[in-house]
Nucleic acid binder design. Structure first.
Length: 695
DNA sequence: GAGTTTGAAACT
DNA sequence: CAGTTTCAAACTC
């Protein structure tokens, strides 16, 4: 379906190329284009650049636009044309680009793909010639690059400001970094408008863009997705809601990695490595302002984080933070739908709290994961875990970075199994559904991807004995459900250990007690003796009652022994109302788990077993601190009502283990139909508990 | 870091 | 199901 615009612009017949080439404008444009292309193909920021590309100044005239019209347009739109413009002001580069374009023309590429390869050819030829030069330019113009990485909206907005408001201040502010003249800005404005027209056309006729433009394939593959997002951009541009626009754009960008990840684990590793690294740096930059998003991001599988970081790399403003939050939530939701969280039991959460002294880091994001795990009867359990990246087959790139290794060695501890071969529930890694990884100190470990079959069999066997064996140990329920455990059990997050503890000597005041370790109170399910669990006693004695020994003892113990213990305790109290996306239940407070470091590879078999641990390990400590700070920074009142009042009936079908630890099924019933609907939705999006065995 | 304690998991 | 053993983390020194 051709549009008038298309008719006007499209063409690029070979015969007419000579005319274009003769045109000074063409030469100028042509000299610009190659660099971008080459650079884009060369850098990791390709996708990121797509998102931030400022309006191109490459389209000064309809003819030029015409010439650019192609699949390339996608890339060109997004790759900082401004940067090119500025960068290529160098006469040397102009010459080089011209030569390249000539070479391309001589090579016959134009003949093969008149419509597309005019660009492609030039880009290729030039890219090869200018690679080095481009790199140099990139190095020489960091500031420029940074500037250009802003979203198109930013640029558009700037242009609007210039043209509409004619504010000298704005002009100076915008151009100062680039020493650009006002005329250039106006030209940009015009160019961008032309570009927008092209975008419209492009959306209308994607098929024309499908010409096989070799290296552009990557971009082309996402072109469709980009189109959607582009539309968002466009629409928003009209609507002047720059922020929204940018959000959409970034969301798209963020999603690209996920697609890749879903399709290829290898990419996952690569991304977690490269992108995360940059991500970390970025995160550090605005860690304070973006805590919420960080924590949320952290709680999810991660790829998104990668993108976020990338985005942040170029945009450190507040806007970025806000967008990041939005994106985090959005992506998180998507991720959950695709790959639900996998229970951490008590194991995973710990890391979050330990190492709280480390500065907030994005790695947290990476290492944390939050999900809802339905129990047998549909009870929704939220789990939060701090997991290492690497999934099966992954290279665990995160662990390879010096920084991460340093963190791991310093504060990360994994399993230390000596005799169980890490194939029993004794092994925290195995129990958490994760593969052991290098940092583990286990001996004769079979809990590795190479022994996947054995792992799966073992798991299956264990599950046959106790279907709940790999289920989350800590159940988070609503306040209403809490009553079933005892009104006095005002434990963090109103969570409870599913099976309860069996402590006899620790009085449930030490981490020997799984309830205490998880930061939850004991419940009637517990068979503990002399329970003094400060998070809530089995007998329902109010902590603040006559006998305050529990709490005191607990805190004393914590303060005397491990400062982080007390932190855990406090966090358990303070974090019970962590705001989360509406489709994500609140975190349980089971973060005083056993792991002190990031988690090992998740045992994610073809059965989709699990979570998608993806992140770097080293950050667990950072993760913890950030997690803590984030949680603490979030007032309880800010918890969305939908979460606070979400009614999640806790009906535990218990297949008691041999010891038959009691699990008291709460008799709570949801009186709210709304709540029930909510629950259904949640369950709908959450697969059954992960299993080593395919469904 | 070695040894002890503890309670969950596994076994009988 | 109860008792015992095994196990690894938590804890102590």
């Amino acid at each position: 379906m051709d549009t008038p615009h298309k008719t006007q612009i499209t063409p690029t017949p070979t015969s007419s190329l000579s005319k274009f080439e003769d045109s000074p404008v063409f030469k100028y444009i042509d000299s610009l284009s190659p660099i971008e292309q080459a650079k884009s193909s060369q850098t990791d920021n390709a996708f990121n650049s797509l998102a931030f590309l400022s309006p191109s100044s490459l389209f000064p005239s309809p003819q030029i636009n015409c010439h650019r019209e192609s699949r390339f347009s996608v890339k060109r739109h997004h790759f900082s044309a401004d940067l090119n413009t500025r960068v290529l002001q160098s006469s040397n580069e102009s010459n080089a680009s011209q030569e390249a374009s000539k070479a391309a023309g001589q090579s016959g590429l134009y003949d093969e793909h008149p419509g597309c390869l005019s660009n492609d050819g030039s880009s290729k030829g030039i890219s090869s010639d200018l690679f080095d030069k481009q790199s140099d330019l990139a190095v020489e113009l960091p500031g420029t690059s940074k500037y250009d990485c802003r979203s198109p909206d930013d640029n558009l907005e700037a242009c609007d400001a210039l043209l509409k408001k004619t504010s000298l201040e704005v002009v100076e502010q915008e151009r100062s970094p680039f020493q650009r003249s006002r005329d250039e800005w106006k030209e940009r404005q015009r160019s961008f408008e032309n570009e927008r027209d092209l975008r419209k056309i492009r959306r209308i006729k994607p098929s024309e863009e499908a010409a096989g433009c070799g290296w552009v394939a990557v971009v082309s593959d996402v072109a469709d997705m980009l189109t959607v997002n582009t539309s968002i951009i466009h629409e928003n541009s009209d609507g002047q809601d720059q922020r929204t626009v940018d959000s959409g754009t970034t969301s798209f960008i963020s999603n690209i990695p996920e697609f890749s990840l879903d399709n290829a684990n290898n990419l996952e590793n690569a991304e977690s490595g490269d992108h995360q690294g940059s991500c970390k740096q970025n995160e550090l930059g605005d860690s304070v302002t973006d805590q919420t998003s960080c924590i949320l991001s952290t709680c999810l599988p991660d790829k998104p984080v990668v993108t976020d970081s990338s985005l942040k790399k170029d945009d450190k403003g507040e806007k970025c933070s806000q967008l990041s939050r939005q994106r985090s939530i959005r992506r998180r939701c998507l991720v959950f739908e695709k790959s639900p969280g996998f229970g951490l039991h008590l194991n995973s959460l710990p890391n979050i709290l330990k190492g709280g002294q480390n500065p907030p880091n994005k790695s947290i994001l990476s290492s944390m994961k939050m999900g809802e795990v339905p129990s047998d009867n549909g009870t929704v359990v939220i789990e939060s875990s701090c997991e290492a990246p690497a999934s099966i087959g992954g290279t665990d790139a995160d662990h390879n970075t010096p920084e991460k290794k340093r963190h791991e060695s310093a504060s990360c501890k994994r399993c230390n199994c000596k005799r169980s071969k890490c194939l029993k529930l004794y092994c925290d890694c195995f129990a958490a559904g994760l593969y052991c990884i290098e940092p583990c100190s286990c001996l004769d470990c079979f809990n590795k991807p190479i022994h996947e079959k054995m792992v799966l069999e073992t798991r299956k066997q264990i599950e046959s004995r106790n279907p709940q064996a790999f289920a989350p140990k800590v159940i988070r329920s609503t306040d209403s459900v809490l009553d079933t455990w005892g009104e006095n059990n005002k434990t963090p997050a109103s969570a409870r250990h599913k099976r309860g503890c069996n402590c006899r000597k620790s009085s449930c005041l030490k981490k020997y007690c799984e309830c205490f370790q998880a930061g939850v109170g004991c419940s009637p399910s517990c068979r503990c003796e002399g329970c003094k669990n400060s998070f809530g006693r089995k007998d329902g004695c109010d902590e603040s009652g006559s006998d305050g020994e529990g709490l005191e003892a607990c805190e004393k113990n914590a303060s005397d022994k491990n400062s982080h213990d007390i932190v855990t305790h406090k966090n358990a109290e303070e974090h019970r109302d962590l705001p989360v996306p509406s489709n994500i239940s609140r975190l349980p407070l089971a973060y005083s788990g056993k792991f002190t470091g990031s988690f090992p590879h998740s045992i994610r078999s073809s059965s989709q077993l699990c979570n998608t641990p993806e992140h770097g390990s080293s950050e667990s400590s950072l993760c913890q601190s950030k997690f803590n700070s984030n949680l603490q920074a979030i007032p309880e009142d800010e918890t969305p009502k939908v979460l606070k009042h979400k009614c999640l009936p806790l009906i535990l079908k218990t297949n008691s283990p041999p010891n038959s630890k009691r699990v008291s099924p709460p008799h709570h019933e949801c009186s709210s139909s709304t709540a029930q609907r909510s629950r259904k939705l949640i369950l709908k999006s959450i697969p059954s508990f992960p299993s080593f065995c395919p469904p």
